[in-house]
Design a protein around this nucleic acid. Structure first.
Lengths: 352, 352
DNA sequence: GTGAAAGCGCTAACAG
DNA sequence: CTGTTAGCGCTTTCAC
């Protein structure tokens, strides 16, 4: 295995000192144009590129940030939710614009140390969707690096966070249904933790809309046993739900993929969507317009979410003043109408 | 900003030399149990973790591999195909098992140098889905690092590749349709390049099945103008296709998300799937069972594909003998029946 | 068992 | 303008 080409080789071949080569590489110091050209020529000839490892040894920066996604790896492989890919797309795009690279890691249920952050001199971390209950969150909160938390609902106002206005989203979903005349509206979601987190906030929004419409959200209509965020979980959740409830006319769920599973169950059991039951999803993923029926969903710009997170992180790394003022970015959702919701059926109205 | 805690600090506090600390960290050399314990205690107290940058300076390895995905970034942000996320999940999982980290980068249409591979001492690269025509492929092929190409169909037998048996997949799709009695079968795909690549091979498989059934694949039935791999592209492609052809009874397309768009177009234009037209997709993504109708599709284990790629890469990095023998891993697809295909309708049969 | 010392490739003073 | 030199944190002989 041949030796790495180092700055020294370049220096020798160009008949200059390594300091000069260094200056040329970094455009620093005063170097005559002639020398610059010569050195650059040699660099090209030798196919030299500077070792970041060596650089990092002096400078603290590694020009690399980490993205921590829950459950991607090992024990808890990521649930195939396109949402993450959109988010990562946004992050990568933002990083690339600023010449940063992105390291992707997952955090499992096991104890994690995140020692890699120090080991690799990571300049920052974007943490996706960890609640305060997440085991690893403690560790994460104690790290001494710039961090941005996405969808995490952390109380500490000093933390940098990117969120969706989930309450508004939940509100839109429920409001839409009440406006269509629905009264018996079920909610299908994962466990909502201890009154925090994305799902809980969406739930609060729903509740508000229902209250406004003079509807009380029956406990029995809140189904929080969807184990994962997946089509399958949605499918199984409605099945269970319908065992104990038979008069609902609408369902809200907090992800499009669960909505998909829900619709699948309903239509394959001869319950018409939206005629018998309306369904509202959440996220507005690419496929939501292409399902049959197309989804009414609360859209969020996930790619942008990723970009915002990256921007917030980089501002922080740069120590920009802006960063101090702008610690929390809250994006707005948007209701997208599809064919999965409709006014409550007249026959049902009559029975009320 | 406080100084990084280095091996020196540990050495001082533990009253040993840095060499000993190093030995403890790496479990090398002879160190008395007593010293080991003392040093480890100090390490914990100080919260010390060794700098990989410094390590990399000596050792060549960075314990990091790069994943290169086409068009994720900047100019050509990734098309929202869950396929990639599955693949990356597999890769990350494989990496994590072997204590490697994964850097995610995109390659745009622009000229790319991949200098980061040397700069960051990457131990290897997994390249996803680049044809030989891809501009950056030349660069990629000339790099001097272990690489694994996924879905790339490169001629050089020395290259490490992970592929799906795409011909078999295409064959399954078409065979299934001919067995159902279909004769006028259309193909909707992206441009198929110069007779290579994933799509072309799937096409070959189709062709074979059709030939076996005594059907010639009409030129006019091959629609290669789907611009991207997306539901929208599928939607628009059928629309165009149906302008010039009106007697097809089945459509094959090489991704589930295009299939989704196709079905959407058909059903929303009152063409029944599968009664009027059968549709076969490809990939077997999570949602394929949950569409309405559910998709008949050629399933591939995408997560496994990622894992295999990682394994092949790591074998190569380790210089395992196995790697020399096993340069090409070809996974097998599997036909998954859904409700989007059905025997050709009797009414049509009568007209033939 | 343990330590001293020489680098790995680069940057950043500081001289010249 | 350009070169010398001292580290950055760690691994690795080679002595003791």
């Amino acid at each position: 295995m041949k030796h790495r080409i180092s700055i020294t080789h370049v220096a020798e071949k160009a008949n200059v000192s390594i300091a000069t080569v260094s200056n040329v590489i970094n455009g620093k110091g005063r170097v005559s144009k002639k020398t610059v050209d010569r050195v650059n020529k040699v660099i090209k000839e030798l196919g030299f590129s500077p070792s970041m490892a060596a650089r990092n040894l002096k400078a603290i920066s590694s020009q690399m940030i980490g993205v921590v996604v829950p459950g991607l790896g090992h024990k808890g492989r990521l649930h195939a939710n396109p949402f993450y890919w959109d988010l990562v797309s946004g992050i990568e795009e933002g990083a690339r614009d600023r010449e940063f690279h992105v390291m992707l890691t997952s955090v499992s249920e096991e104890e994690e140390t995140f020692s890699f952050v120090k080991e690799r001199h990571l300049d920052g971390l974007i943490v996706v969707g960890g609640d305060e209950e997440m085991k690893a969150m403690d560790q994460l909160l104690n790290l001494d690096v710039p961090r941005v938390f996405v969808d995490s609902y952390l109380a500490d106002p000093n933390l940098y966070q990117v969120l969706l206005d989930d309450q508004a989203g939940g509100y839109m979903a429920a409001r839409h249904l009440t406006e269509l005349g629905h009264k018996r509206i079920a909610l299908i979601t994962e466990t909502m933790g201890d009154h925090e987190g994305v799902n809980y906030n969406r739930y609060l929004g729903c509740q508000k809309a229902l209250e406004e419409a003079g509807i009380s959200l029956d406990e029995e209509l809140i189904f929080t046993k969807a184990v994962t965020t997946s089509a399958k979980a949605g499918y199984e959740a409605v099945r269970e739900l319908l065992k104990s409830v038979d008069d609902i006319t609408a369902i809200i769920t907090f992800s499009d993929i669960k909505a998909m599973g829900i619709i699948k169950y309903l239509t394959s059991h001869n319950i018409k969507v939206p005629n018998d039951i309306s369904v509202v999803g959440f996220d507005g993923l690419f496929f939501s317009e292409y399902t049959t029926p197309s989804l009414t969903t609360v859209y969020q710009d996930t790619v942008r979410k990723g970009q915002e997170a990256m921007e917030l992180l980089l501002d922080q790394i740069d120590g920009k003043k802006a960063a101090t003022e702008r610690r929390k970015v809250v994006l707005s959702p948007e209701l997208r109408l599809g064919d999965s919701t409709a006014p409550i059926a007249p026959t049902i109205l009559r029975n009320l």
